[in-house]
Amino acid sequence: MTITDDAIQQAEARMATKRDHAYAIDARYNRGTKRVIVRLHSGLELAIPTYLIEGLTAATPDALAEIEVSPSGLGLHWPQLDVDLYVPALLEGQFGSKQWMARQLGATGGRSRSQAKCNAAKANGLKGGRPRKMQA
């Protein structure tokens, strides 16, 4: 199948009119702050710490620095890591899959150090703590 210049121009025109989401025009990795900086078409820049993004937590700075923005501006791709992100999802605070996000939220809740949690732990301790497991 041969793609003509006319077909390319029509596709580009369709793409330009269908953008109802924010889209990226540039993305880079800042080694000093360890953040991915995404510049949107509106001029807004997002600075996201890499530890918040699934697939980027243990990546090397060189791998993080190689970011590709999709032609539509709706996707970011790290070729060395085989990681893809959807830009509108980033704006909604979704930095990974549902399972990964649930694990992150669960880990944060388990580390909570509220006064209510301390009081509950003390009350449970006064009751003798956790019951011992009985062997069958």
Rank of each mutant, 00 (worst) to 15 (best):
D6P: 02
A11E: 11
E12A: 13
R14L: 10
M15W: 13
T17M: 12
K18F: 11
R19N: 07
H21I: 01
H21Q: 07
Y23T: 06
Y23A: 08
I25Q: 10
D26M: 06
R28W: 07
R28M: 10
Y29M: 04
N30R: 07
G32S: 04
V36C: 04
V36N: 00
I37N: 04
H41E: 15
L46P: 00
A47K: 13
Y51W: 03
Y51A: 10
I53F: 04
I53K: 05
G55S: 08
L56Y: 01
A58N: 09
D62L: 11
L64Y: 12
L64W: 04
A65M: 01
A65T: 04
E66D: 12
I67S: 00
E68R: 15
E68W: 05
V69R: 01
S70K: 04
S70I: 01
S70V: 01
S70H: 03
S70C: 02
G73D: 06
L74V: 03
L76D: 09
H77E: 08
H77V: 05
P79Y: 07
P79K: 07
V83P: 00
D84H: 03
V87R: 15
V87P: 07
V87F: 09
P88E: 03
L91M: 02
G93D: 10
G93M: 14
G96T: 10
G96V: 06
R103F: 12
Q104R: 12
G106F: 14
A107G: 06
A107Q: 12
T108S: 13
G110F: 10
R111Q: 13
R111P: 00
S112M: 11
S112T: 07
R113W: 00
A116G: 06
A116N: 04
K117H: 06
K117A: 09
N119P: 03
K122D: 12
N124C: 09
G125I: 05
G125C: 09
